[in-house]
Design a protein around this nucleic acid. Structure first.
Lengths: 338, 338
DNA sequence: TACTTTTGGTTAATCGATTAAACAAATATA
DNA sequence: TATATTTGTTTAATCGATTAACCAAAAGTA
């Protein structure tokens, strides 16, 4: 077993030239003759040469790595974001290091430290539910490393962001429900401290008011939006004297939990209560009844976040000012609301 | 904005000592006085020193990175595997680079190249469905880098492996279905070229024979086991003159597809046909009826794969011979089969 | 006192690739 | 012919941390 990797030196020795010449030949430097280039590439192939990334990264001061922080990889949204991000970054010669925060603030800080330690050239992140203190993110910026947030971002932090228009999404949902004849619409929302959930709540309230529908405090709840939260919150709504005739849930998982309870209680969806989720997770189309939801354009988000990053490091691209990209979302109407 | 990172030299300058002393102090070398260590650590903190990982990795010949290749991150199985792998590797000072093959052989090869290029200290992989040619994996071994396969592994490759006992899992499923009174059990399987699917098929056939049940060729099908495949294969089975009274599907996604068709056709599950999946994806408990499935002990698998890797690099651990770890699986009985 | 050992460092080489600067040879220009 | 320019390559420094080898001063020992 040949444990030692071939280096520039090995190639140089074979051809009796300097390592500098070899390096330049492999990088197609104009000052190296065609003949030498050919010979070098030939030998490189024969010896199965693989450049040592650590060495070149150290020398060039660029690791060609991009760090990614997501709450969890196991949602379709994030895995799709990653896939499309990869596609863009691959072409530019970057590799992605994926880390999961598991919705934990502490883990997120660890991840940031790890990524900085690995000398990544940039960080793209979607914040954990728990995250409120942003000083750790400041650390990234003070290191002079580009930071791009997506989906779960914080606008107050003076940083680039890619996401959908949550406020408008709420409006679309309410419009749709009103069109279906709903008069009393509840909202199972996330915590307001997270910007996207706050926007969804604001959108909900404004749209409700616009249509002169009742905006009772009891119709609006906040939680972490897990499946279990969905179950608990719908129970509360069902316990009301005056039940809602539609529920807009700010996450598909919580919407699923709500649906389970409704089915267990033999409350007909959509006949008695209409239900709308958020995120367009694959299972929304798989359960019975299928759940109406909002598509977040994960592909676009991944692509745009990656391109925004490249805007910082690509010399061909003129550095733009701060980027806040807000995409329009799309309402996917399914059985649960018609 | 202070773009330059603090280096050992900066600390050394402040204290008027050599960089070597600083390095040793930070690494708690015995030859450095307590006083100096304290001073160094103090200054390091003040200057917000972050070691340059590239430099130390280059020098030490170890990147402290472990490469991971999975078909896709968006299944609960894989994200859980990753989470537990991380936990073990974190403690040993390793970081994980996650790559997705998207079930493509070509992408998988790219991923291997990328990881080798990044000088990872080891690779842990679950192979893509497509992968048949294993020469690329040989490349890893010829580079002297530890390779550990999990779940989708190939036993012929002389390499460590962590997975569940697929053969026995099939037996458990058939035992269960027989106990429920099934007489004619079909199997929607994966392609035999993939070892785990071959084992599931073998287990199915042997268990069927053991119970003297009919083993018709028409009751056994092979496919990629996507949701769509599940739909197609169940259609075939329903078209038979002599329909099965139970179907064992080798993947939860395909099982879900089968369930959809059965519901569309108003065939009652489990009354008319009992259904069993494989993998225990979260949605199996969410759909109606909930789907009986096999739990693959993702936590254990992640943990053991990581530990197997550490067995190669950890000097404290005596290097074991080739490791093939086969875990027992667990049958989770739900509504679809009782 | 004279020699040995220990303590607490320093010096300099090294990991492998890149690159600014230098340089010899070939070619072009006046 | 003498000088300038171009071509193709070499030399040597560099990125930042680590470490083998060395060394001076302090402490211990006979």
């Amino acid at each position: 077993m040949n444990k030692k990797r071939t280096t520039l030196k090995d190639i140089a020795n074979v051809l009796s030239i300097s390592t500098a010449a070899v390096s330049k030949a492999l990088n197609d430097d104009a000052r190296i003759s065609v003949k030498t280039k050919k010979a070098v590439k030939q030998v490189a192939k024969e010896l199965n040469y693989q450049p040592n990334h650590l060495a070149s990264a150290l020398r060039k001061g660029k690791s060609k790595l991009v760090g990614l922080i997501v709450p969890r990889t196991n949602s379709n949204f994030f895995s799709s974001v990653v896939e499309n991000m990869e596609e863009v970054l691959d072409k530019a010669g970057y590799n992605i290091i994926i880390t999961q925060s598991n919705e934990s603030f502490e883990k997120e800080c660890d991840n940031i430290d790890t990524l900085l330690y690995l000398q990544v050239d940039g960080i793209i992140a979607s914040m954990a539910n728990e995250t409120v203190d942003l000083s750790y993110y400041e650390k990234i910026k003070s290191n002079g490393i580009p930071l791009i947030l997506f989906d779960r971002g914080e606008n107050d932090l003076n940083v680039d962001y890619v996401g959908i228009n949550d406020y408008d999404s709420s409006h679309m949902i309410i419009e749709h429900l009103v069109a279906q004849g709903c008069k009393r619409i509840a909202h199972i929302g996330g915590y307001r401290r997270t910007r996207i959930f706050n926007n969804r709540i604001r959108g909900y309230i404004d749209a409700i008011k616009k249509h002169n529908l009742p905006h009772d405090e009891e119709l609006l709840t906040e939680s972490s939006l897990t499946l279990e939260d969905g179950r608990n919150q719908i129970e509360k709504l069902l316990a009301l004297k005056n039940r809602p005739d539609a529920v807009y849930v700010a996450s598909d998982y919580a919407a699923l939990g709500a649906l389970q309870v409704l089915k267990e209680r033999n409350i007909k969806v959509p006949e008695e209560i209409k239900l709308v989720g958020f995120g367009n997770e694959p299972f929304t189309s798989l359960v019975t009844p299928s759940i109406t939801s909002i598509s977040q354009h994960s592909k676009q988000i991944g692509k745009l976040a990656a391109e925004t990053f490249l805007g910082y490091v690509d010399k061909d691209v003129v550095r733009q000012s701060l980027n806040k990209i807000i995409l329009d979302s799309e309402l996917i109407v399914r059985d649960s609301s018609k």
